[in-house]
Simulated assay, not measured.
Amino acid sequence: MSDTNDLRYPIGPFTFGHTYTFDQSQEHIAAIAVFPHNLTELVGRWGDSRLDTPYRPGGWTVRQVVHHVADSHMNAYIRTKLALTEAIPTIKPYDENAWATLPDYRLSIAPSLVILSNLHQRWVAVLNDLTDAQLQRLYFHPESKKQFSLAEALANYAWHGEHHYQHAYQLALRNHWV
């Protein structure tokens, strides 16, 4: 992997198309549960100069990353609930790059950290009660024209949290902030 890709994908890209056992899904749920705490511990006290530093050349700032994760995980929570209450619902994609240019992405990260903490508490409450059969429930993504199981979606969102956590953490290491 090139240096640019190392910065863009510090834990490697997510690979779709795998199946996951119930135990693996439990590990993904555990990762989703602790993510807001870990992110808050890392960036919660950073000042504007650190938050407004891109994690890589041409990449988003840490501030944008935190707001993006809140937006992304809100969508994931809704997609989870749709998959549990409807037969293979078609989810609504969104343009994450366009969202990152909206005015709320210039706010303090505090509202997004609070959203993540509270959202993950609700999301994990739902996830912890899922049976293996429920983890196999599907939703349809119209951009990829593929169906995804909740088990695969959980793996993706566990990866997504760590992926963005590592963007901030690796930036902090490079700049001697930790």
Rank of each mutant, 00 (worst) to 15 (best):
A151E: 00
W123G: 03
M74L: 13
L82G: 05
P142D: 06
H141L: 09
Y77N: 09
L127Q: 00
I78V: 14
I115K: 08
S2W: 08
P54Q: 00
W177Y: 05
I88S: 15
I91R: 10
E162K: 13
V66G: 00
R45C: 11
V62Y: 01
W46N: 02
L150E: 06
E27Y: 11
L130W: 01
L42M: 09
H28E: 10
N75P: 06
L39I: 02
D71P: 03
E152P: 00
M74I: 15
H164Q: 04
R106F: 14
M74F: 12
R56W: 00
L51F: 03
Y157V: 02
Q121T: 13
A153N: 07
A168N: 01
L154E: 01
Q147C: 13
Q134H: 10
V65R: 00
P89D: 08
Y105E: 07
Q136N: 14
I29E: 06
F148N: 05
I109N: 04
S49T: 15
G58Q: 07
E143F: 13
I88H: 15
F14K: 05
H160M: 04
T19H: 13
F14A: 01
D6G: 08
W123F: 12
N175A: 11
V34T: 15
L150C: 05
Y94Q: 10
E162P: 02
G12Q: 09
M74T: 15
A155P: 01
E162R: 13
N75A: 15
F148G: 02
S25Y: 04
A98C: 10
R63Y: 05
I29L: 09
F148P: 01
Y105H: 11
L7N: 00
T4N: 11
L82S: 09
A30L: 11
A31H: 10
R122I: 07
N38P: 07
E143I: 10
S49E: 15
E27S: 11
H73F: 09
Y77V: 02
N38T: 15
N128Y: 09
E27D: 10
R63V: 02
I29W: 05
T90R: 14
D104S: 12
H28F: 15
R137L: 12
V124N: 04
A172I: 02
L130Q: 02
H176P: 07
L138H: 08
H18M: 14
H73T: 04
I88Y: 14
Y139H: 10
K145D: 08
G47F: 06
E27T: 08
L107C: 12
G161L: 03
L42Q: 08
V43A: 08
A83K: 03
